[in-house]
């Protein structure tokens, strides 16, 4: 549970296009690390390379090293499927499986790992995960309804429940609140605060207030111009980034001078 991620000299490509260049950073366990930066700076690309979802796109590849507690995620013998079972992900738009019930959605990941699970064990996992995602009280009476019958915010918490049901080492969140209203956003942010007791969390956000509210560390990405690769400008404790950043570009961005 809760492992650290070390990224060194990461270059990420889409075919021949260098999208992100030279990222080196350490992501601490049991903390929230936020990626901020203008659109197209590569923050989503970086987070997708952390669980090898980047390479799902044809022609996409990386150079460099990403290690989970010292173990290279891109090693020759490493199966990307295993990596994704260790590192969970929540997407920009809620994506529960529409053909599955709420119950089946939560244990979808467990079903992949061990096909045979007693009903009692499954129910226990469902309750634990839904409680973990602050959704249990809202859905406990209708676990057999389709996941798509929930509101957007509930669907997103269902996706979080699905991701934590398999007890991953790291939880990645790619703009998890960008499709949600302020109240649902608040619910997710509270949840992130609770989840960091147990998980290493990386969150991409466009909302700087959100990064300031939920994260312990903040990484600022920027790009020199269209067609240029995105780069990590600086990474530091969140208070420092938002009060006294060491780079001029960071200060310009957080003070709203561009982006």
């Amino acid at each position: 549970m809760a492992k650290r991620l070390d990224i060194s000299d990461l270059n990420i490509y889409y075919s021949d296009f260098l999208a992100v260049e030279g990222v080196t950073m350490a992501i601490e366990p049991r903390s929230v690390t936020a990626f901020i930066g203008p659109s197209g700076c590569g923050k989503s690309t970086v987070i997708r390379s952390l669980n090898r979802m980047h390479e799902v796109i044809p022609g996409a590849r990386i150079e460099g090293r990403i290690a989970l507690d010292g173990e290279d995620l891109y090693g020759r013998e490493v199966d990307p499927v295993r990596v994704r079972r260790q590192i969970g992900m929540v997407f920009q738009r809620p994506n529960p499986f529409p053909t599955m019930s709420i119950h089946a959605n939560v244990i979808a990941g467990m079903r992949l790992n061990n096909k045979r699970m007693s009903k009692a064990a499954a129910d226990e996992v469902v309750e634990r995960s839904l409680r973990g995602a602050n959704l249990w009280n809202e859905v406990k009476d209708r676990l057999n309804r389709p996941g798509s019958s929930l509101s957007g915010g509930q669907q997103q918490r269902l996706c979080i429940a699905r991701a934590i049901a398999v007890q991953p080492d790291v939880l990645l969140m790619d703009e998890p609140c960008s499709a949600l209203d302020p109240i649902s956003t608040l619910a997710i942010e509270d949840l992130i605060g609770e989840l960091k007791q147990e998980y290493t969390i990386v969150i991409v956000t466009h909302n700087m207030q959100q990064a300031a509210r939920v994260s312990d560390q903040t990484a600022f990405f920027n790009l020199a111009g269209v067609g240029q690769p995105g780069k990590l400008i600086e990474m530091d404790a969140t208070e420092k980034i938002f009060s006294n950043p060491s780079k001029k570009a960071t200060e310009d961005y957080i003070s709203g001078r561009f982006g």
Partner: peptide, 27 residues
């Protein structure tokens, strides 16, 4: 099949065939 659902199953650690069973065939 929405990419969203395919990625949801892949991110849970589904193999190609499992992704097809979880996301593509039901859809």
């Amino acid at each position: 099949t929405p990419t969203l659902h395919e990625e949801a199953s892949l991110a849970l650690g589904a193999t190609r065939w499992e992704m097809i069973r979880m996301a593509v065939l039901p859809f």
